[in-house]
Nucleic acid binder design. Sequence first.
DNA 1: AGGAAGATCTACT
DNA 2: GTAGATCTTCCTA
Length: 194
Amino acid sequence: MRVLPKSFYERNPAIVARELLGKILVRKMDAEGLSGKIVETEAYYGEKDPASKAYKGRKAFNELMFLDVGRTFIYMVHGNWLLNIVAHEKGDVGAVLIRALEPISGMETMKKNGNVKDIRFLANGPGKLSRALAITKELNGVYVTKKDSQLLVIEGERESFEVCSSHRIGVKFDLPQELRFFIKGNRFVSKASS
DNA sequence: AGGAAGATCTACT
DNA sequence: GTAGATCTTCCTA
């Protein structure tokens, strides 16, 4: 398996978000590994983006968005952990939110974690995805570019699919451009369209 | 102490 | 499909 290099994340968040589609997110647990294909993402910028956690400037809790790319940035919203991966051009600020996965392996454990029976509803949302993969603050700041990390992103299978975009979900003040990306027709995206 | 937060679940019109 | 209650940290006062 091939782990995506750090340089992958050292680009405009919107590009990284789009290209993360189809890649595989791997969560290493005790014995087995859980994994899923990324089917939905959103890009977030820095201080110019009113929906971004970094909007109000650098603070202790959002510092990761300002630092090294290729690390996780995890925070809690409405009782859910949301998984982001830090991504931005050199010296810039930003991250990509992973919004939905198509489960590939470790389904049984994921069902148990998320207390869900139907695979289709296992990871079709950022909060549920975290529950299914047992992602919490403990994994905040982990490098997804390192092979021995508990959480990492690897190259997916070669396949073609159509990418759709829309405005981001749930944000109060969105930017004019569309920053949510998802695989067209995939059953596991959280919402079919905007 | 109080409130806001990129969500989710449930129960309905 | 939409609306509302509830969700649980962490930030700001």
